[in-house]
Write a protein that binds this DNA or RNA. Structure first.
Lengths: 234, 234
DNA sequence: CTGTGGTCTATGGTATACCACATGTCGAGG
DNA sequence: CCTCGACATGTGGTATACCATAGACCACAG
């Protein structure tokens, strides 16, 4: 008989990390009256675990930049400042543009074909229709390029930045008809990849992402803070 | 009178993290007979702290990719594979080339002048003379570019990659007269920055770093592992 | 000699108790 | 009424005890 090994890797620390991370991402941390305070003992009770594994999870979350632990003060979910968000977009542009360069050189024809197929499903007409759905497709598009680079590190680093911006992306997508523009940009990127033009692919991806940078900087500057992300599709 | 606030942030967790990190970086982890095993209780005893803060430090180190914690098996310092090192170089190139682009656009004249001054101190003649010293200057050169980008995130992400490669860099520097070539590359980069040519600066930095990538791939492929980093200057 | 199963020990995982500091409260003293 | 300090309480920080499993070791049956 054949048996799969019992998963023995599951530790409370990891479970707790996942739960908390998901919960934090779900929070509307930019609401004015959001409760950014976390209480170790309370969390431990809710999760039904002791503080030890909980604290180890919190340590990870802190390093990820999701929370800040202030000794004898409390644990707080961090609000990214506008500057920090802009820097994340820059770093993201750096990583993904390099990924595009590599993809243009190394991606298989099948991968590029799959990318075009994916993009085709979400053409201009439908983009504006359902922003929520398009937002998902948009994320997938970028993930595919990261994957096509063949460099897992680029992908994982970009992913780490991505999660910090999911609220940002939702919001920005709804502003200034960016979705339609996005579709056009994507097509250009695909064509550059098909042409195996690494320089062009890199530039297009960088410009595409930096347009988000410019948009966010212009649109949100002078706002005291980012408030009410509110579902973009709503 | 003026007084600096007492540093109250110093927690054992952070101290332990620093110590362990330094100790790991100091290790010759690629020695065949290196002891990659860490023992929680032993470490706690050596550091004179309990296991609790120690484990929190280990959690951080694990996420940083320095160690691997296997439940009921042990804590192990991880050896980076050649592929992982190559991917780190790629990511590094992505970040620093973007930094160069930004620096060309935003750096002050004073900063660029300082960069040239720094590079001048380590001209070709001296480069080959004392590799160890030049290696330090080389690191500083790259850090300066990261700083000149004005994007702290780029700098910190690159720094995170850097520390994983300090042994790699030392070794590669000594091979194939790379130090001299490095000096030439640096001068070209400086000139591009002085000319405020963002495209050129980006390309030169990327090419410079990717030359390291090519070198490492060629020189170390087919080696079963990286062995004996041995001081490059020796 | 061999292999099978029990047992012993090392190790990370978890729970819990206690500590030190930060902060809010309240009352004495002015 | 205001000030200031003692005290109560809440919070994260640390130490320690105990648990469950992995793996080595050993005794014994064949």
């Amino acid at each position: 008989m054949k048996l799969q090994p019992i998963a023995t890797n599951f530790t409370l620390k990891d479970h707790v990390y996942d739960r908390l991370r998901a919960a934090i991402l779900e929070m509307n941390i930019y609401d004015e009256d959001a409760d950014l305070r976390l209480d170790e003992r309370s969390l431990a009770e809710q999760l039904q675990v002791s503080r030890t594994p909980l604290r180890e999870a919190l340590t990870r979350l802190e390093q990820d930049g999701f929370i800040e632990i202030r000794a004898r003060k409390g644990v707080f979910v961090v609000r990214k400042t506008l500057d920090e968000i802009l820097e994340m977009i820059v770093a993201w542009a750096a990583l993904e543009s390099m990924a595009a360069r590599l993809a243009a050189e190394a991606a298989s024809e099948a991968q590029i074909k799959a990318l075009r197929k994916h993009a085709a499903k979400h053409s201009e007409s439908s983009a504006a229709a359902d922003l929520s759905e398009y937002s998902e497709a948009n994320i997938r598009f970028h993930q595919m390029i990261l994957e096509m680079s063949g460099c897992g590190l680029l992908a994982s680093m970009a992913e780490g930045l991505f999660v910090h911006m999911h609220a940002v992306r939702r919001r920005a997508m709804a502003e200034g008809d960016r979705a339609s523009r996005s579709v056009v940009d994507h097509m250009g990127i695909i064509e550059a990849l098909e042409a195996r033009d690494a320089d062009l692919a890199e530039r297009l991806v960088r410009d595409h992402t930096m347009r988000l940078h410019t948009h966010v900087r212009r649109a949100w500057t002078a706002l005291e803070g980012i408030q009410g992300t509110g579902e973009a599709a709503g």
